[in-house]
Nucleic acid binder design. Structure first.
Lengths: 350, 350
DNA sequence: CTCCTCACTGCAAACGTTTGCAGCAGAACT
DNA sequence: AGTTCTGCTGCAAACGTTTGCAGTGAGGAG
């Protein structure tokens, strides 16, 4: 039913190979012929069949992008950036959602492998060894996990977590909680490592709670545990959990930041819309999406280059953090000493 | 490099057609042969090449899904539902984002047409005639717009908007604002039509403001205009705009719902997280995603069936709506008469 | 005038599958 | 015993492209 290359060839009185070249190697065909062919193609509504092209060239001009949870507001900006970057090069992005499940993730990679030129694996939950195994079946770029031997794009969340803990310690908090992310998350491990370091340096004690599902519910669910643990400040694995936690704390009658300070990670749009506005570590999700696409597509030219990109993060101080408890009294310390809203502290090297 | 059907055939000592049948028509091959073939396939890591299969069968087992803006929290649940529904039938979903741009939308449909078995067009911004034109190139299911002659899934947002206006009129509001959505949105027109009807029935006057971009910024941008217009209640095209509007109103010193009541549409997760919790019209996005996939895939069997599904919406009353201004005094009416939280009013026929 | 080059075009073999058709046993009828 | 049927398998032609190779004619160089 749809017009094929043969229809165009017949209509314009040339061989199919000339039609083919009109599209994939225009410089090889006579300008007159080319315009005639193009006219016929246009008139017949011809569009090259990508499946047939893929079959012979081995390139699909598709890229897979696997994220843990598309409903997590952290991902859409990354997806959009990757999409537009890919579209510029005439590629399409195949987005899939693993539901935070390593097994689904593996299935997706396998299923996608044959119909894409490469896969962007974002915040994978699989083990490193499995990822390395899969990378032999299809070119992979890993986002948010460092794996030697594979091209990766990471957001330097360790640095951000360090800044966050510094910030809290600077406000006088001596007992700080860390709401860990999901099992299998490299980012969560990084945060933990860096937060522990920063806590020690700042003379604070770090209590880890988790692992937890990285959702609003995950955050709300640990509210009681946080209160019992006696910490006066908390760093959450991501903004969604931080927001859920704040909800949960409010439900238990605790005030933020008067009773407990909360810091998130990601700086999703939502973090500016809740009350109190969330202090958080901003991660450059869009830049990561673009970088990953670039890396994958460059990767196609010279084989087996394993680049690593590490993107800066920033601490954005808003209203959910305040001074720690006065060591000599139990009076409500208020929120007076909170830093200026929207102030940005960063160790950007550039 | 990757194993082909021929490798498996050689290894297991059968003809390639038998290997093919082992996968695509298992009942036609002897159980013994089948297990032998499967073993070889497994061992060689063979996966059928979808491009080759698509070439001959004409079915790609891919479905396109075009949404206006993946960053709008309304869409992800729909996308996830569509994905999982599709995966159950061994289909994959190709998600793309049109950036609220009709021209991009058209390009996407054309680009996707040849590599999918059908496209789910969600909240399209294109004209009806263009959509009808495109539907001749590739099977289309339209979500959130009624088009005769094409299979469609709509959420009955007119009904919900009517309920919302009834609710506001019932609270004593006599001047109600409607923050319209983007130009080209069928849903926006529906809301407007239905809200006008309900307003007249409830003895209220409806002021339409817009069109506007359907984002938080779009809502915030009209805050001043809303205040000047003298309305005491507002229905917004979607939750994102309602939330932006509330932010904007707060910035101008107005209180919600004491000074102005605000109702959103969609019931995104976020609407429960802000203060005041948003009264809104819940739309069954996930159900719509599933229905659309079903419709598209059923569509494949008997050609040219044009089904229409209309999904119920519900009014979810939370804390952003309160009584209208007392006609005899200008005293602050407070929030006492607000309905019980999370009460649900619905005209569900079933 | 001959030969070479050059720009263009046609030919045909791939790419990895699916599928209608035919063949061939052996089983089950008549 | 002959016939039909059934279950399985092989054969080969497609599907719509791309691409190395060969062929064509025109024009330029010698």
């Amino acid at each position: 039913m749809p017009a094929t290359i043969r229809d165009v060839a017949r209509e314009s009185g040339v061989h199919i190979s000339t039609v083919s070249r009109t599209f994939s190697a225009p410089h090889l065909v006579n300008p007159d012929t080319r315009t005639r062919v193009l006219a016929c193609a246009e008139q017949l509504g011809y569009r090259p069949n990508r499946a047939a092209r893929a079959l012979i060239t081995g390139r699909t001009y598709n890229v897979g992008l696997i994220v843990a949870d598309i409903a997590n507001p952290f991902f859409p900006p990354l997806i959009k950036a990757a999409e537009s970057q890919a579209r510029q090069r005439d590629y399409h992005i195949f987005v899939a959602d693993s539901n935070e499940d390593a097994a689904v993730e593996e299935d997706l990679v396998r299923a996608l492998a044959k119909q894409v030129d490469g896969i962007l694996l974002c915040s994978p939950r699989m083990s490193n060894s499995l990822i390395e195994l899969l990378s032999r079946e299809v070119p992979l770029v890993v986002i948010n996990r460092q794996i030697t031997g594979l091209p990766t794009v990471v957001m330097d969340v360790a640095q951000g977590a360090g800044l966050a803990v510094d910030h809290l310690a600077g406000l006088g908090h001596r007992r700080i909680g860390l709401i860990a992310g999901p099992r299998g998350s490299w980012t969560s491990k990084e945060i933990r490592r860096s937060a522990a370091l920063a806590a020690r340096a700042g003379g604070a004690e770090l209590t880890v709670i988790g692992p937890n599902p990285p959702t609003e519910h995950g955050g709300a669910a640990v509210a009681e545990q946080v209160l019992r643990s006696g910490v006066s400040a908390v760093l959450a694995y991501n903004d969604l959990m931080a927001i859920g936690l704040i909800e949960g704390l409010h439900a238990h009658g605790a005030r933020v930041p008067a009773d407990i300070s909360v810091v998130g990670i990601d700086d999703i749009a939502l973090s500016r819309l809740i009350h109190p506005k969330l202090t958080t570590v901003a991660t450059p999700a869009a830049a990561a999406g673009r970088a990953a696409v670039d890396m994958l597509l460059a990767h196609g030219d010279d084989r087996r280059t394993t680049a690593h990109a590490s993107l800066q993060t920033e601490l954005v101080i808003r209203d959910s953090t305040g001074p720690g408890p006065d060591p000599h009294s139990h009076a409500d310390p208020g929120n007076a000493a909170a830093a200026a809203p929207e102030a940005v502290a960063s160790y950007a090297k550039e």
